[in-house]
Simulated assay, not measured.
Amino acid sequence: MYETMVKIRYFEDTMVEAYSEGKTPVFNIGAGPVPGEMHLCTGQEPAAVGICAHLTKEDTVTSPHRPHHHAIAKGVNLKQMAAEMFGKSTGLGKGKGGHMHLFDPNVKFSCGGIVAAGIPQAAGAALAAKKKGKDWVAVAFIGEGAANAGAFHESLNLAALWKLPLIVVIEDNKYGISVEKRQSTSVVSNDKRATAYGIFGAKVKDNDPVEMYRVCEKAVDRARKGEGPSIIEIETYRFLGHFQGDPELYRDKNEVPTLRLNDPIEKLKEKLLDEENLSLEEIAEMESKAKKEVDEAYQFAWESAYPDPEDALKDVFMDESV
C-alpha cells in the first residue's frame, strides 16, 4: 500500500509539471502537451489503496472525474494511462478519451466525468457477477457530492434488494467543486444513509489508509459471501484545487498547509518504520521502484506518436446512410 501511494503521488506531482507546460504566465486550458481539464488526487491516496488491496483483476472498479489514484491502485497499465492523457495513439483510448475517460478492460476499470454515473454501472457489474455465480465484487468510487444524486439512491436500493456485491466508496474531501459538504448534505456522514437500505455502512476518519484497509476487508468479505452491498465514506483531503488552474478562492489560504502536516504518506512511512520495523533502506527501495515505473510511463507517453487525422473517424458509431 505504501509503495502504491508513493506511485500515485509521484504520478500526480509529475503531471502537475507536464500539465503546466505552455499554460503560463496566463492560464490557457487548451495549451501545452496535456490540454483540457485536469483533476488530480494528491492527498486522497488512502481511499484507493485501502480497498484495492483486497481486489483482484476480476473485480470491477468505476471511478469519477478524479480517477488516477483508483486506476493506479487497481493496476491499470501505467504507460497506456499516461499516453492517453497526452492524447497519444498508444493510450488506453488511443488518445481520444483523456484523463477523465480511462478504460482498461484487462483489470475491469473505467471512469467518466458525469457525476454519480459510475454507480449504476458498478451495480450492473455486480448483478452480472451474481447471475454468473461468481464471487466478484464491484466498487464505485464517488465524491461526497455525488451521494446526493438520484443514481446513488436508485442503485443502492436495487443493490440492497437483490443483495448485490456492490461497495460504494465515498471520498469526502469536504468540497463539491467549491461548495462545502455542510452546505449541500443533510447528514453529517454519508455512511449513515446505509441504514435506510438495511446495509453495512462505515466511516473512516482522518484519511487513515490502515483503517480504510480494515473496514474494506469486512465490506469485501461480505460482498463475496453474498451478504449484500456496503457504503464506506472516508474523510480524505484534497491538497490541490478542484482542477489545475483553480484559484481556490472558496477556502482559507492556511487550509492546505495545515492539511499537508497530516500527509497520509508520511504518516504511513512513520508507521512502517516504528511499528513494522522496516528500515530506511527498504523504504527507499520501495520509493525508487515506484518512481521508476512512473518515469518510464511518462517517457513512453512523451515519445509515443499522435493519432493520424483520419483516426478521428475510427472506433466511433456512425450512420453510414447519412
Rank of each mutant, 00 (worst) to 15 (best):
A82W: 09
G145E: 01
V107G: 14
K88Q: 07
K134W: 03
A83H: 06
L92C: 03
A138M: 02
E154V: 11
E180A: 10
K132G: 13
L102P: 10
A151K: 05
Y175E: 15
D191W: 06
A122R: 10
L102R: 08
N190L: 13
V169T: 03
E84Q: 07
N157R: 05
K96L: 07
K132A: 13
D104V: 02
K79W: 05
I119S: 11
R182T: 14
D172R: 07
Y175A: 15
A138P: 07
A140D: 14
D191C: 11
D135V: 02
N173P: 10
A194Y: 02
K79H: 04
P165K: 14
G118D: 07
K79D: 14
E180S: 14
L102F: 11
D172N: 15
E180L: 12
I119N: 10
G133A: 12
K108A: 15
F109K: 03
L164D: 11
G95C: 04
T195R: 05
L166D: 07
M81W: 10
A125T: 07
A160C: 00
R193C: 04
I119T: 02
V188Q: 13
P165E: 04
M85I: 11
A159H: 05
G124S: 09
G143K: 00
G98H: 01
R182D: 15
A117V: 06
I167H: 03
I119G: 09
W136R: 10
A83N: 08
K94S: 14
G97H: 06
G133E: 03
K163F: 02
H99Q: 09
A83L: 06
G112L: 09
G118I: 04
V137R: 05
G145F: 00
A147L: 09
I177A: 12
N173M: 04
G176P: 00
G143Q: 05
R182W: 08
P165R: 14
A194I: 02
M100H: 03
S189L: 11
W162H: 12
Y175W: 15
V115N: 06
M85G: 09
G97I: 01
V115Q: 15
K132Q: 10
